[in-house]
């Protein structure tokens, strides 16, 4: 057991944070979100620096470097990066033997049969589809998905009327067991993104409450406010360490279900509390909280959210649900 980053992990994190300082950040996220755009520049920069393949490149003895990839995705989420980092860096390497073309989006087959907005689908070159006991890879032609306006902080797309998606003709390696693999790594990705996003939302709120004065004192000095923030901090830290542990164990089903069950519940708490404590300014576009807070609610909607994660946890732990 060791909760400190080793030298290699430290180097990975510093390097991605340097890149993000240059290519990402809340202002950029706001501009991209307004246009419903994907951050192709950030995606390309991550690709060029080797981060998109990090899980495979740092693999040892054929074991994916899930933790290093998760640390990278967590940092990208913290920066508000508008890229499909979890799908690209965590899910795709676990599922596909060859490198698939990004951006990568993920959805359930239900989101195609009853078309609903799917994160990153309008920009995706590869789409991973979970169909109950099966999983398949699709390379959607341009126009297959139409952009959808959303309140929830990520570019989204919906299957266009009359369009359909078929399993990739190359049918790459999404055979037996692929559905479970997809489910577990997707769930891990959601937890990791939630952690980075909650971290930033709480940090932004705490910073504001250290400055903002009302009733002749800083709001952050009121005990009623402090206790709520302290409880939020506990939620974020517990989510962070559960998730990192699950990533280290490469999305082992019980570990990842626990991490997602906890982190996605925490995401609801963090959304509610950061907005409540930030007051009216928290709802405005000039205050960056929304860059992270709105995303938390989108993350909670994927793969059955908290309820499905808890069911998966009960099944993994006790063999029944």
């Amino acid at each position: 057991m060791d909760f400190d980053l080793n030298e290699d992990q430290q180097a990975v994190l510093e390097s991605v944070e340097r890149l993000l300082a240059q290519h990402a950040g809340p202002a950029r996220a706001v501009a991209l979100n307004r246009a419903g755009d994907y951050d192709h520049d950030l995606h390309a920069a991550l690709e060029a620096a080797g981060f998109n393949q990090i899980a495979r490149d740092l693999a040892r003895d054929d074991t994916l470097a899930g933790l290093e990839a998760a640390l990278t995705v967590e940092a990208i989420a913290r920066s508000g990066g508008v890229v499909a980092a979890a799908a690209q860096m965590l899910v795709a390497p676990a599922l596909c033997e060859r490198t698939i073309e990004g951006p990568v989006a993920i959805c359930t087959v239900g989101e195609l049969t009853q078309p609903t907005p799917v994160r990153f689908a309008a920009h995706a070159r590869s789409l991973l589809v979970l169909d109950d006991g099966d999983a398949y890879l699709v390379s959607p032609a341009p126009g297959t998905f139409e952009p959808v306006r959303t309140s929830f902080g990520y570019p989204m797309g919906r299957l266009s009327e009359g369009a359909s998606v078929e399993p990739d003709r190359e049918g790459q390696a999404l055979g037996a067991g692929a559905a479970d693999t997809l489910r577990n790594w997707w769930r891990l990705g959601l937890a990791v993104e939630a952690v980075g996003t909650m971290d930033a939302a709480l940090g932004h709120t705490v910073e504001y409450l250290r400055q903002r004065r009302q009733f002749g004192r800083t709001i952050g000095s009121f005990q009623a406010v402090q206790h709520r923030l302290s409880l939020c901090a506990i939620e974020v830290e517990a989510s962070r360490w559960l998730t990192r542990e699950a990533a280290f164990h490469n999305a082992q089903p019980e570990a990842v279900a626990a991490a997602a069950a906890y982190a996605l519940q925490a995401a609801d708490t963090l959304f509610t509390e950061t907005h409540q404590l930030s007051g009216a300014i928290g709802f405005t576009c000039e205050f960056d909280l929304h860059v992270w807070s709105m995303r938390l609610l989108a993350l909670r909607q994927e793969l059955g959210g908290v309820g499905a994660a808890r069911r998966a946890l009960v099944e993994a732990r006790w063999g029944a649900a």
Binding site: M1, F3, W241, A258, A261, Y262, Q265, A321
Partner: peptide, 30 residues
């Protein structure tokens, strides 16, 4: 366990136990 509410409560509780464990481990590591 046919009752989805019971399943939900058990899952929630298990996640909480795990969350507490991992935070204690962080302290033991220090």
């Amino acid at each position: 366990l046919d009752d989805p509410i019971v399943v939900d409560r058990l899952g929630e509780a298990r996640a909480l136990c795990e969350a507490a464990r991992v935070l204690v481990y962080k302290v033991i590591d220090l």
